[in-house]
Amino acid sequence: MSSDSGPTGPSEPLTTDAVTRIVLRPIASPLPLGFFALGMGSTVLSSLQLGWVPTAQSEVLLLLVLIFVVPLQLVGGIFAFLARDAGAGTALLLLGAAWAGTSVTSLDSPAGEPVAAQAVFLLALVPFVLALAGASAQSKPLFAVLLALTATRFALTGLYEAGLGNALQVAAGWTGLGIGVFALYGGLALLVEDTRQRTVLPLFRRGKARESIEGDLREQLTEAQQEAGVRHQL
């Protein structure tokens, strides 16, 4: 029978700390970019819904959304995932793809007329955005409110596209302006926080989100071994 003993004594299994090293790369927060892009896109489309821009110029606004808003939200979403924030990354990428989809299909649809296919898409999107809002409410209530307002706007626009009346489009437009103001405040607050490394304008962070700003590095990395990309399975 062979022995487990070697020249230096009995062999012992290596601990995780002895064989694993987790390397994290600091990056700037992508949330200010995501907030500002969302606010810009929402405000621009509100100007169309409220009749401030002639319907004949709708293609120009939709192209601006595709060229300006969508890429910025997609970049923000990708970097949110790289920053290990699955909730923010999912929300920004989902909304960016939604802006892209609705803008492209609107370009191919008669200007100023409801489109039933758009109604199906927007109304189907609402519960998913609300789910993201619910998941964010425990730690980032400001982000949750922004997502809830966005879901409300999608619902109002979807009902208008279903042919239930122009009043719904006007309500969606005013809701979009509210989103723009809210996103402006949130993006500014996040940008100042990231610059000063402390909360200056209230963001109402709670739980893990608050610890991420006020806690030390050891607290930040305690659960890193359980995160996607480190653990063996998602």
Rank of each mutant, 00 (worst) to 15 (best):
A28Q: 11
V181Q: 14
E223W: 05
S106W: 07
F143G: 03
L122C: 02
F143D: 10
P30V: 05
F36P: 02
S136W: 09
A100V: 01
R231Y: 03
H232Q: 13
E12R: 15
T16S: 11
L177D: 01
N166R: 14
L132H: 06
L147F: 10
A151T: 07
G186K: 02
F204G: 04
V145L: 15
V75Y: 15
A86S: 12
L125F: 14
V230L: 02
G207F: 05
G178T: 08
F79T: 08
L191V: 00
S29F: 05
V120Y: 10
G41T: 08
L38H: 15
D108W: 10
L61W: 10
L156N: 04
R198M: 11
E223R: 08
R205P: 00
L156P: 03
S5W: 09
G180N: 09
A91L: 14
V126M: 06
S106C: 01
Q225F: 11
W174M: 10
R231E: 04
P141Q: 13
D108E: 13
L82H: 09
G215F: 05
W52M: 12
V200M: 13
V115R: 06
L217G: 00
Q73D: 11
L94S: 12
L62V: 02
Q220I: 00
W52C: 03
R84P: 00
T195L: 11
P10A: 14
I27T: 01
Q118F: 12
L188T: 14
A144M: 07
Q225H: 15
V200Y: 14
L188I: 14
Q226F: 11
Q233W: 12
M1S: 14
S46L: 12
L146T: 05
G87T: 12
S2I: 09
G51K: 11
S109G: 09
Q49D: 14
P26W: 06
L149I: 04
L92H: 05
L107T: 10
G39P: 05
L123Q: 08
L107K: 12
G34H: 08
V69D: 04
Y160E: 01
T152C: 12
G173F: 06
S5E: 14
G134N: 13
L203S: 02
V181T: 14
G180E: 11
V44R: 12
L168E: 02
A135W: 15
T16C: 01
R196Q: 12
E219C: 00
L190V: 07
A97F: 15
T150A: 03
S109E: 09
V69W: 07
I179R: 07
T20S: 04
E227R: 14
V230M: 02
L33V: 05
G187S: 13
G180M: 07
L156R: 02
F128C: 02
L95K: 03
S58G: 08
L125N: 03
